[in-house]
Computed example of a mutant assay.
Amino acid sequence: MNDEGFDPIAFLERAVPVASNDDVDEMRDLLVETLESHGTDATVDDAGNTLAAKGVSDPETHLVLNTHIDTVSPHIPYAREEGIIHGRGSCDAKGPLAALLAAFFAVDPAPDARVTLAITPDEELLSTGAAALDVDGDCYIVGEPTGLDVCTAAKGRFEGTVTLAGIAAHAAEPDSGSNAIDALAPVLDAIRSFDDDRDEHPDLGAATLTPTMVNGGENSNQVPAACRLVVDRRSVPPETAGGFREALESTLRDAAPDEVGVDFELTERPTPFLEAFATDPDYELVTTLARASREAGGRGAVRPFTAATEASYFSPSPVVVFGPGELADDEGAVAHADREYVTIDDVRTAATSLKTAVSELIGTATVD
Rank of each mutant, 00 (worst) to 15 (best):
His201Met: 05
Asn215Lys: 09
Asn219Ser: 14
Asp175Thr: 10
Thr251Val: 02
Asn219Arg: 14
Arg192Ala: 15
Asp182Leu: 12
Ala172Ile: 11
Asp203Thr: 15
Ala207Cys: 03
Ile191Phe: 02
Pro237Cys: 10
Val187Ser: 03
Pro202Gln: 08
Ala225Gly: 15
Gly205Ala: 08
Pro237Asn: 12
Thr210Glu: 15
Ala183Ser: 11
Ala185Glu: 13
Gly205Lys: 09
Leu209Cys: 09
Val231Arg: 06
Pro202Trp: 09
Gly242Ile: 04
Asp199Tyr: 02
Asn219Lys: 14
Gly242Asp: 14
Ser250Asp: 14
Val223Leu: 03
Pro211His: 06
Thr210Tyr: 08
Thr210Gly: 09
Arg198Trp: 05
Val187Met: 01
Val230Gln: 13
Phe194Trp: 10
Leu184Glu: 12
Gln222Tyr: 00
Ser193Lys: 12
Ala225Pro: 00
Glu246Cys: 00
Gly205His: 07
Gly177Thr: 05
Val187Trp: 03
His201Glu: 00
Asp254Gly: 09
Met213Asp: 14
Gln222Trp: 00
Asn179Met: 03
Ala185Met: 09
Gly217Gln: 05
Glu239Ser: 11
Arg198His: 13
Gly217Val: 05
Phe244Arg: 13
Leu252Gln: 05
Ser193Asp: 15
Val187Ala: 03
Ala255Lys: 06
Arg245Tyr: 02
Pro186Trp: 03
Ala225Asp: 10
Ala225Val: 00
Asp199Pro: 11
Thr212Lys: 05
Ser235Cys: 13
Leu229Gln: 06
Ile181Asn: 08
Ile191Thr: 03
Leu229Ile: 09
Arg198Glu: 15
His201Ala: 01
Ala172Thr: 14
Gly177Val: 09
Val236Cys: 01
Ala190Pro: 09
Val236Ala: 11
Ala241Leu: 09
Val236Trp: 02
Leu248Asp: 03
Val230Leu: 12
Gly216Arg: 05
Val214His: 03
Ala256Tyr: 07
Ala180Trp: 07
Gly205Phe: 07
Ala207Leu: 06
Asn215Ile: 00
Pro224Met: 07
Val223Cys: 04
Cys227Gly: 04
Met213Ala: 15
Val231Asp: 09
Gly216Leu: 05
Ala180Gln: 02
Glu218Trp: 02
Gly177Glu: 07
Asp254Tyr: 01
Arg234Gln: 10
Ile191Ser: 01
Gly205Trp: 10
Ser235Pro: 13
Arg233Ile: 05
Val230Ala: 15
Arg198Lys: 15
Gly217Cys: 07
Pro238Ala: 01
Ala185Lys: 08
Glu249Phe: 05
Ala180Cys: 02
Ser250Ala: 15
Arg228Ser: 15
Phe194Leu: 12
Asp254Val: 07
Gly243Tyr: 12
Glu246Val: 12
Asp203Trp: 14
Val223Ile: 13
Asp197Lys: 11
Glu239His: 02
Met213Phe: 14
Thr210Asn: 15
Ile191Asn: 04
Val214Thr: 10
Phe194Gly: 12
Thr240Gly: 04
Gln222Ile: 12
Phe244Trp: 13
Asp197Ala: 14
Ser178Pro: 01
